[in-house]
């Protein structure tokens, strides 16, 4: 899970910054609130990520306040950062087990940034279905062992999709909570 998390933490920060410029500690607090339920992100991780984004030109330091310590800087997203977030959100994830966290993160960010979360789910479903069609075809042509393997994958994919459907149905509720 944390691997998946690391892969998308940059985009998550960008998403949080898109709404409004924030200090590092504010980003951490927001992140922990929405996504860090079991495992709050470490400060070191926060600043490492921010400096990576800074290097990539995706964020910039909007203001530096007087005093000591890393928390003096207020970060803002750049044009390039916004584009990066948009692309990330629009790109379906490779269907695979335990995808929820990424998808959830995407949904919340889409809501936070005022994007169409439903759109995101539809795109993801289409991607899932494409894979499921392949599996169904393989199953039809394969032997029993092949069928069982395919079925395993199909059931997992279906579970993902069900979760997606449920989330879609509850988007309004989620939006109200996220924007609180």
């Amino acid at each position: 899970m944390c691997i998946v998390l690391r892969m998308s933490i940059g985009q998550t920060f960008l998403g949080l910054l898109e709404a409004t410029p924030r200090h590092g500690y504010d980003i951490k607090r927001r992140y922990d609130e929405h996504f860090g339920h079991a495992r709050p992100v470490a400060y070191g991780q926060v600043y490492a990520t921010l400096s990576r984004l800074l290097r990539g030109g995706l964020v910039e330091v909007e203001a530096v306040e007087p005093g000591e310590g890393p928390d003096r800087k207020r970060y803002a997203i750049t044009e390039a950062g916004v584009t990066d977030v948009a692309q990330w959100l629009a790109r379906p994830e490779q269907p695979e087990p335990y995808l929820q966290s990424v998808l959830y993160t995407k949904v919340v960010l889409a809501l936070l940034t005022g994007r169409q979360a439903a759109e995101l789910l539809d795109v993801q479903r289409a991607e899932h279905l494409r894979l499921m069609r392949d599996l169904t075809r393989r199953k039809r042509d394969g032997d029993l062992a092949e069928q069982l393997i395919c079925d395993h994958a199909l059931f997992h994919l279906e579970a993902d999709l069900r979760w997606l459907e449920l989330t879609t149905a509850r988007l309004d509720e989620l939006a109200a909570q996220v924007r609180r």
Partner: peptide, 17 residues
């Protein structure tokens, strides 16, 4: 259908919301 595994027998899907 509302079942993905059934929809997987299709060539293409249309979503109604």
């Amino acid at each position: 259908t509302h079942e993905a595994r059934v929809a997987a027998y299709s060539d293409r899907e249309v979503v109604v919301r």
